[in-house]
């Protein structure tokens, strides 16, 4: 079963920790990203409630931290995520977790 990353983006604060943690892990240059935080800018919905989402997604440079995982660890982005909204696992496990929450979730295969 393939592995991936699940993000509960209802609670991704857009803090950029995952981006830098990934860059450190993959030893990337300053303009390269294995993980990138995107923003859907704030706006007010017709009912007056607010929309403002961040979502972190892995790029083609992401190798799901194969070295760390092989050594028994967890991916750098997952570990450092301040909101603890990133999860690593098999797609099956992640899907179950996402469905259990039922909203604002996404699973990525880099």
């Amino acid at each position: 079963m393939a592995n991936g990353l699940y993000i509960d983006f209802e609670f991704c604060s857009g803090c950029h920790s995952c981006e830098i943690a990934c860059r450190n892990e993959l030893e990337l240059g300053i303009t390269d990203f294995g993980m990138k935080v995107l923003e859907d800018k704030p706006r007010q919905n017709p009912d007056g409630s607010w929309h403002w989402d961040y979502i972190a997604y892995p790029t083609e440079l992401c190798n799901l931290c194969e070295d760390r995982v092989a050594a028994g660890g967890i991916p750098a982005c997952v570990q450092h995520c301040q909101a603890k909204v990133l999860y690593y696992g098999t797609i099956e496990e992640l899907t179950a977790q996402m469905l259990e929450k039922g909203s604002k979730g996404a699973i990525f295969i880099p």
């Binding site: 803090c15 950029h16 920790s17 981006e19 450190n24 570990q79 450092h80 301040q82 603890k84």
Partner: peptide, 17 residues
């Protein structure tokens, strides 16, 4: 390399940028 410390009771491996 500088990483978060998973054994820290408050931050549990996380770090800010």
């Amino acid at each position: 390399k500088i990483e978060g410390d998973p054994e820290h009771p408050i931050t549990r491996g996380s770090l800010c940028p």
